[in-house]
Design a protein around this nucleic acid. Structure first.
Lengths: 339, 339
DNA sequence: CTGAAAGCGCTAACAG
DNA sequence: CTGTTAGCGCTTTCAG
């Protein structure tokens, strides 16, 4: 069928290994032979079969990404497209392709990782989120398979990970709200088994604590990154006798959901309640009012993750490293000072 | 190293071929042997090496996506994350993974496709955009390699493609604006070598024509999907003696860019100018004011493309087909009636 | 119903 | 500097 290395060898009157060496630019091949072989390759329209190559070299030049849970839902969130954008860009510049896979639930996700790793489909993996007891991480670690975690693992500290200082970031936003005069500040997290939720909750708590403000359970809400859950949170808030005057949301999308829900209830942001989010995605800029947000450098997280992974695969770079991408408050109208 | 089919065969006291047959659920294997072999596989923690399998079966269960030009820029646009979301979801349900690749320019893109195809890395390809003289399409077509085009090809009509009726969609928006009383309607396209730009321009023109409105060159602008280019377009519009009262933008992002630029110049939307976009992405809902937009069913385009490709790979389904995803006008504040 | 043998296309010692 | 020889791990005739 397709032209192989043997065909080229034949026609060039050399051995297959010579052709192979020409392809890999082996130093000890003569200019003459090299030129001759290359010419034949050209003529015959030869192109190496990567599968065969991979089979013997045991490398694929692919890096895998497993999309968290509903490939479906989560993609809505610009976080994922941003980080993938970063990963793909960096990967491409390092001559790697990106293999995207997903499962419809946690089990399937785990299986997907196992399939990629043990099926030898990828040279390394980037994990886009970490749970409390993350079996995928344990598996990868045990197998000593190259991987990079975007986020932080609560179980293991000896991993390569790319993350923000989420505690500090949440602390910073909260503090800023406190400085603006707020005392009754609520926090709307994502699912609490996600490390990022907990870290930000911690930062929030810490800021309140340092300011001598009592941390109240009634001001803490566990959401789920969806509009519906934001709707419910707002319902709950409205039922409170002593409503918060400001809210820190885990996410711009959640912040937006809150703003919209409040709006429907006839409340105005920031007049009736200040709101701040995280990620500084397009949405924060475009919302009415624009949303105060923490820029966590998502794209950069993607490029850093890809770079760290590639280095790890190649054996240079670190065996373990915690790469922290700096964050930055972008203050906008949704978080006007408390009047 | 890792446990292979031979190890399993040995331990089970059968031949490798038998194990292979067990794996592929070959009908003519006895229940007994099958059970025995499966048990050993379990014990040994056997997992098939997909590369080896792929090498002989010549299928990978991967489908490739080549990100148009700057993986970088284009991802900004929610169109791409949406469509990839659709593709990945559908692919996963058909037991396919998605291989993402990109190039920094047109040449590299072409090479990327060639690399994937000839390197046997993927079973099929989804193309996310088509240019006027698209060499990638010619290459794929000539090679008879399974692929699906998202969009429309001007050169070939005998392809499998998933598209909207962009002419009709643009016609519909424009007509709606005309019905609202507008006579001076501008059109801001993307690069005109993109088929989608041309199709929408055609629809726009057709609507004007039918309404007996002169089509004026000064009302047609070629943008490039970026904020900067929207800024420039607004500058140009403001220079016109006879400014348009409404604008059809190729895209929500462009619409948003226009709105923002107008805003900065002290003009208000829709009072000073009505604006409508395409895609109905989150941004259109969240913008101030909310942007009237054509919902083109991006996610569905993704799932349809993946489905069509998988069918084509498997040999069922069509050799050629033009799948049209319906569109729908979502009228919002940015396109208030002309007063 | 199962085994033996050949081979997918390539690389990597080991010789020369 | 180049050729020979073994595989990589799996599937697939062809026999039995």
């Amino acid at each position: 069928m397709a032209v192989t290395i043997v065909d080229v060898a034949h026609k060039a009157g050399v051995s297959p290994s010579t052709v192979s060496r020409v392809i890999s630019n082996d130093s000890r091949i003569s200019q003459k032979t090299s030129r001759k072989v290359r010419k034949i390759m050209e003529e015959l329209g030869y192109h190496p079969n990567m599968l065969a190559k991979s089979l013997v070299t045991k490398t694929t030049n692919n890096i895998g990404i497993v999309l968290p849970r509903p490939a479906d839902e989560l993609f809505q969130n610009q976080f994922f497209s941003e980080i993938i954008r970063g990963i793909v860009t960096k990967a491409a510049s390092g001559r790697y392709d990106v293999l995207l896979t997903t499962g419809t639930n946690e089990i399937e996700e785990e299986q997907a990782v196992e399939r990629l790793v043990r099926g030898r489909n990828v040279d390394g993996i980037i994990l886009l989120s970490s749970k409390k007891e993350d079996r995928t991480i344990s598996f990868l670690r045990e197998k000593k398979f190259p991987f990079v975690l975007v986020g932080r693992s609560e179980q293991y500290s000896d991993l390569i990970s790319v993350d923000n200082d989420n505690v500090q970031a949440a602390y910073d936003v909260t503090r800023r709200l406190i400085q603006a005069g707020h005392r009754k500040i609520a926090f709307v997290s994502g699912p609490l088994n996600l490390t990022v939720s907990k870290d930000r909750l911690d930062g929030y708590t810490k800021a309140l604590y340092e300011a001598g403000i009592a941390v109240q359970a009634q001001y803490q809400f566990e959401g789920s990154f969806t509009m519906e859950s934001s709707e419910e949170v707002v319902q709950d808030i409205l039922k409170l006798k002593d409503r918060p005057t400001a809210i820190v949301a885990i996410d711009d999308l959640v912040a937006f959901g809150l703003i919209r829900s409040f709006w429907r209830q006839g409340l105005r942001i920031p007049d009736d309640c200040s709101i701040a989010g995280f990620n500084n995605t397009l949405i924060s800029e475009m919302c009415l009012p624009p949303i105060a947000s923490v820029d966590i450098g998502i794209y950069q997280m993607g490029t850093s993750a890809a770079q760290a992974l590639i280095q790890r695969i190649k054996g240079d770079g670190f065996e373990q490293a915690r790469i922290i991408i700096p964050h930055q408050l972008i203050w906008r109208e949704s978080a006007g000072a408390h009047s």
